[in-house]
Simulated assay, not measured.
Amino acid sequence: MTAPAFHITVHGTPGPQGSKNRNAAGALYESSAKVKPWREAVKSAALDVLTYDAAWMPIRDAVRVEIVFSLARPKGHFGTGRNAGQVKASAPQYPTGKPDTDKLLRSTQDALKDAGVLLDDSVVTDTVAAKRYVLTGDDTLSHPGAVIRVWRLNNPKEAAS
């Protein structure tokens, strides 16, 4: 496989986008306060990379997006006393609770669009997403964040020419 068209590492707590609540006046707002800081972190990391590529144009063709979200373990996963800092044997290996992977994808893809990586998030035809605890596997970070890769998909019409 060729190299990704775009690759970044984002530092910060991944925030899900999708669920909305209404305030007393009836206005809608994001239910997660983590959405805005996360989208800004993704946008900032993307713009830092794009600054060095004056010829970059937002991708308008089909892409595959691969993202590994690194989430912090809850405090209850760790021992106490002399075992403080040690993950309990009973702690789950994978994060199965909130945030939902699809909502993390939504906020991240929107941020990639806002940064100018993608013309629109509708160009994403293939996704591979994983949420993991920090330091538990390939592409996981030592702190919350994400590793994001965007791959251009070959256009069969162009390949046949």
Results as ranks from 00 to 15, higher is better:
53 D>I: 12
77 H>A: 14
128 V>T: 07
145 G>S: 09
45 A>K: 04
54 A>V: 13
94 Y>G: 00
141 L>W: 07
103 K>Q: 13
137 G>H: 01
56 W>C: 09
12 G>T: 04
153 L>H: 07
85 G>M: 10
38 W>T: 06
23 N>M: 08
91 A>T: 08
25 A>E: 06
114 D>K: 08
131 K>Q: 04
91 A>P: 02
102 D>G: 08
133 Y>K: 04
23 N>T: 08
145 G>C: 09
63 V>T: 12
30 E>F: 13
54 A>D: 06
40 E>A: 13
3 A>Q: 13
8 I>H: 03
97 G>M: 11
125 T>S: 14
10 V>G: 10
29 Y>E: 07
117 V>W: 02
93 Q>G: 00
22 R>Y: 07
106 R>N: 14
48 D>P: 00
21 N>G: 09
19 S>Q: 15
78 F>K: 13
26 G>N: 06
94 Y>A: 12
87 V>T: 06
130 A>F: 11
49 V>H: 00
141 L>H: 03
92 P>F: 05
132 R>W: 00
84 A>I: 12
68 V>M: 07
99 P>R: 06
27 A>H: 03
12 G>I: 03
65 V>A: 14
121 D>N: 10
124 V>H: 01
86 Q>H: 10
132 R>G: 03
128 V>R: 02
110 D>W: 06
128 V>M: 04
2 T>P: 12
158 E>R: 11
41 A>F: 15
121 D>H: 02
22 R>L: 14
71 L>D: 02
28 L>R: 10
79 G>S: 11
101 T>R: 08
59 I>Y: 08
123 V>L: 12
68 V>L: 11
111 A>F: 12
43 K>L: 13
134 V>P: 01
10 V>S: 05
27 A>L: 05
63 V>D: 05
106 R>F: 06
66 E>F: 01
159 A>E: 09
102 D>S: 15
58 P>A: 14
58 P>H: 07
98 K>C: 13
77 H>E: 07
85 G>P: 00
53 D>C: 14
2 T>Q: 12
157 K>T: 14
76 G>V: 10
52 Y>W: 10
30 E>W: 13
78 F>P: 01
35 V>P: 00
80 T>C: 10
158 E>T: 15
112 L>D: 02
6 F>K: 03
79 G>A: 14
54 A>F: 08
126 D>V: 15
115 A>N: 03
138 D>Q: 13
44 S>V: 10
107 S>W: 03
26 G>Q: 04
136 T>K: 01
88 K>P: 00
12 G>Q: 07
150 V>L: 05
48 D>E: 14
31 S>K: 05
13 T>C: 09
34 K>P: 00
126 D>C: 03
34 K>I: 09
59 I>T: 08
131 K>P: 01
113 K>W: 06
145 G>I: 03
72 A>C: 13
53 D>N: 10
153 L>K: 14
87 V>W: 03
148 I>Y: 00
148 I>K: 00
161 S>Y: 10
160 A>R: 10
128 V>K: 01
32 S>G: 10
50 L>G: 06
55 A>R: 06
87 V>I: 15
109 Q>T: 03
138 D>F: 05
1 M>K: 03
116 G>R: 04
34 K>S: 15
30 E>T: 11
19 S>A: 15
121 D>A: 11
113 K>R: 13
103 K>I: 00
31 S>C: 12
118 L>Q: 03
44 S>T: 15
147 V>W: 02
